[in-house]
């Protein structure tokens, strides 16, 4: 995949760009060295950093702030964008586990699959994943004031999606991306078991006509999507389709179902404060 084709989403001026080779002489740099180079580049006022041949290096983008764009060619390791607060990261390829861990703000775009525990406890920002994701996605994401984390998954998700969710939006589209570039419906189940266990705020929206009541975790309930919710997600879906070249009309071919909390206090009744 070539960079310029995919950078359209950011529309950043082509200045202050730097390219960093993450594997000079085909030897991947240690993560500390690579991340130090990124910090060095930021110190030198580079606003756009292109990483070449990334090969499993962890913590790329950790706690970075501000107006910054990182393009990753290769496979970033765990904890991509952990504690990040503002920058945009785009991965031309897949990524490993824990992308967007405890992220406060920013954007992570993955042109492939992502591993487990994406967006753990994220408070804000967007994580867009073109294809499939693993287990425990969006656990305990939460919203606060203007902060509203959004995770959109083009493909399908596994078990424990949106567990303990305390705000924000998780959207799973259930699409499959063929090698020839066409987009069709995925033949995999859209999500795994124990969906939304302990959810007490926010919503999970699945694009499916199937009944998945049996997969629901404690405290979660399925609702039909409302007009307001449709309007709410429309711009995000459009943006998602735009970034990943998905024909927008395929989206309307299946209905959306919404999973929301039964109560804001799912476990409130479990405790007893009697003086003894």
């Amino acid at each position: 995949m070539n960079n310029t084709e995919k950078e359209g989403a950011f529309k950043l001026e082509e200045k202050n760009i730097i390219e960093i080779n993450a594997a000079p002489n085909n030897k991947p740099l240690n993560y500390k060295v690579l991340n130090e180079k990124i910090h060095e580049a930021i110190k030198n006022n580079h606003k756009k950093i292109i990483l070449k041949d990334v090969c499993g290096q962890r913590f790329i983008g950790a706690s970075l702030q501000g107006d910054l764009e990182i393009i990753i060619n290769g496979l970033p390791g765990n904890d991509l964008g952990i504690f990040m607060d503002g920058p945009k990261i785009m991965v031309n390829g897949n990524c490993e586990d824990h992308a967007g861990n405890t992220m406060n703000d920013g954007t992570i775009i993955i042109h492939g699959n992502a591993g487990d525990v994406v967006g753990l406890s994220a408070r804000g920002g967007k994580i867009y994943i073109k294809k499939d994701v693993g287990y425990r996605i969006g656990i305990h994401i939460k919203e606060y004031e203007s902060k509203y984390p959004i995770i959109i998954i083009g493909g399908t998700a596994k078990d424990f999606l949106g567990e303990y969710m305390a705000g924000g939006l998780i959207l799973v589209l259930g699409l499959k991306f063929c090698l020839d570039g066409t987009v069709i419906e995925s033949d995999q189940p859209i999500c795994g078991n124990l969906l939304g266990t302990g959810i007490h705020r926010g919503k999970i929206i699945l694009r499916t006509e199937k009944d998945f009541t049996a997969k629901l975790g404690v405290g979660a309930k399925i609702f039909e999507i409302s007009e307001a919710e449709k309007n709410e997600i429309e711009p995000f879906i459009k943006e998602f389709c735009d970034i990943f070249n998905i024909p927008y009309d395929i989206i309307s071919k299946k209905p959306f179902k919404v999973i929301k909390p039964i109560s804001k206090r799912p476990f409130g009744g479990n405790y007893c404060g009697q003086i003894i």
Binding site: R136, H140, E145, E163, G167, G268
Partner: peptide, 16 residues
């Protein structure tokens, strides 16, 4: 950094 009135539930383990 959570909305007013909402429960603050800490999961039993760190899920990472």
């Amino acid at each position: 950094m959570i909305p007013k009135g909402s429960d603050a539930l800490s999961p039993y383990p760190h899920h990472d």
